[in-house]
Computed example of a mutant assay.
Amino acid sequence: MAVLVTGGAGYIGSHTVAELLAKNEEVVIVDNLEQGHREAVLGGKLYVGDIRDKDFLDTVFRENAIDAVIHFAANSLVGESMQNPAKYYHNNVYGTLCLLEKMNEHGVNKIVFSSTAAAYGEPENIPILETDRTLPTNAYGETKLAMENMMKWFDAAHGIKYVSLRYFNAAGAHESGRIGEDHDPETHLVPIILQVALGQRPHISVFGEDYATPDGTCIRDYIHVSDLADAHILAVKKLLRGGESRIYNLGNGIGFSVKEVIEIARQVTGHPIPAVVEARRAGDPAVLVASSERTREELGWRPKRDRLERIIASAWAWHQSRPTGYEA
C-alpha cells in the first residue's frame, strides 16, 4: 500500500514513517518543516510544502497512487492555542479542509487522524471512554474536535472513511536511536526532565502537589511513540479492509504521576534531577487516563513498550546522543 503521511517529519509522524518503512510499505511524506525536521525522515518520498496550498496537494496526489492518508500535520501547543486561536483554526481546521477536498477530488477515501484526548475537556470518567462527552477547554482541543466532525460529514457526503485516534502523551524514541523528540519550545514532561539531567535546566517544576491522587501530583497517560505509530498503521489496515469510520482512544489505562515519572527518570539517568514545587496551573485536571479497550478489541492493538522505564530509557538514549536535537 502507498500511504501519505502529513506532518511526517514531526515527532509522531516520523516514527510512523519509520514503522511503515520497516514493513516495506510505500510512504509519501508531506511536511512544511515548520515544526518537523528533514533529518527525522528516514526514507520514503518527501514533499516540502503546506497542506493549505491546494496546488501543492494536487501535485502530491497526481504524482503518487495514494491508498490512504495518515494526518498528523497540525499545531499542538495548548497555551499557544489560547493566545492565538486564529493560527490553530487556520492551520488545523482549514488545513484539514484543504486535505479532505483534495482527497475527494483525487479519489482517496481513507484517512487516519491523529486527534487528542483534549477533545474531552474535563473528564466525566476515569478512564475516559470514547462515548464520553466532548467539551474541550482550550482552542487546540476544539480545533481537533472540529477536524473530527469535518471528517464525519465528509464521510456522510463523499464516503471518505476515517479513524480518529485520541491520546495524550507520546514519549520515548525509536529503538534505532536515529529519531526522537525535538520540539522548540519544549513543553512535554519527559524531555524537560531529561534536559535537567543533561544540565540544560536547573530543575524540573512540579505544578501542584495537593491533587486528589496518591502522591498529590497529576496523573497522565504516557505511551511509547512507536506504540502510537503501530496503532495508526493498524487503523489504516482496518480501513483498507473495508472498516467503517470509528473513534478510538489510545492509553495505558493506568497512568503515571509527575513524581513517578521524575523518580523513574532519576533511576534511568543516575542524575538527582532536582524538583521544585510550584503553584498549580489553571485547568490541569488531577487525572487524565484514557481507556483503550475498544482499540485493543477492534484493532488488535497491544502496546509492546508500555513500561515507563523503557519509555524513558529510550528517550534518554536519544537525548544523550543528540543533546541539542537534530540541529546538532
Rank of each mutant, 00 (worst) to 15 (best):
E327H: 12
L308F: 05
E34R: 15
D155V: 00
V17C: 02
V93I: 04
T187E: 13
G270F: 05
R62S: 14
A328Q: 14
E101T: 11
A279L: 11
I233E: 07
A74P: 00
V163C: 10
G243N: 02
V48G: 07
I312C: 10
L135D: 11
R52N: 14
A315P: 01
R62F: 11
W316C: 02
F168N: 13
H224Y: 13
P214T: 13
D55Y: 10
F154V: 00
K110Q: 13
T269A: 04
V41K: 06
M151I: 04
A290L: 15
K102E: 14
H158R: 12
N24I: 00
K161T: 10
S81G: 15
G255A: 03
G13Y: 04
T213P: 09
W316V: 05
H188E: 14
H71T: 10
N249H: 11
A18Y: 05
L135A: 12
W301P: 02
S257V: 11
A65W: 03
G43W: 01
M147Q: 15
R266Q: 02
Y120G: 03
R280Y: 05
I247F: 12
R246A: 12
I66N: 07
T187W: 14
I193W: 07
T6G: 09
I160Y: 01
L99Y: 00
L250M: 12
G13T: 09
P136V: 08
A313W: 02
Y167F: 15
I233V: 13
E39D: 15
H15A: 07
G177S: 07
L189I: 13
S257L: 13
L33R: 10
G253K: 09
E263N: 15
I311E: 09
L4S: 04
G253V: 06
K102I: 08
E19V: 09
H106Q: 06
T143G: 06
S291T: 06
G43H: 01
V261I: 15
T16C: 05
I12K: 02
T134Y: 12
T131N: 08
P285S: 05
H224D: 15
P85W: 04
T187D: 11
V93P: 01
V30Q: 08
A173K: 13
L228W: 08
S114D: 15
H106N: 12
F56C: 05
D132G: 05
E209D: 15
A74N: 01
A65N: 14
D210A: 08
V112G: 13
A170T: 11
N24L: 02
K102A: 13
A313K: 13
K110V: 03
R296Y: 05
A139S: 14
S81R: 13
H319A: 09
E130D: 12
A9E: 03
A279K: 14
L250D: 05
P85I: 06
L20T: 00
W316F: 08
P303M: 05
G141Y: 00
Q35Y: 12
I126D: 09
P136N: 05
Y11T: 01
T143F: 02
A315N: 04
A119K: 03
D184T: 10
L100F: 14
H188R: 15
K161R: 15
E244N: 13
V163I: 15
Q200C: 09
D67R: 09
V225N: 06
A9V: 01
R201A: 13
D31H: 05
E278Y: 01
V277A: 00
A328C: 04
S292I: 03
K110Y: 13
R220K: 15
E293N: 11
T134N: 10
D31R: 08
H232T: 04
A86T: 12
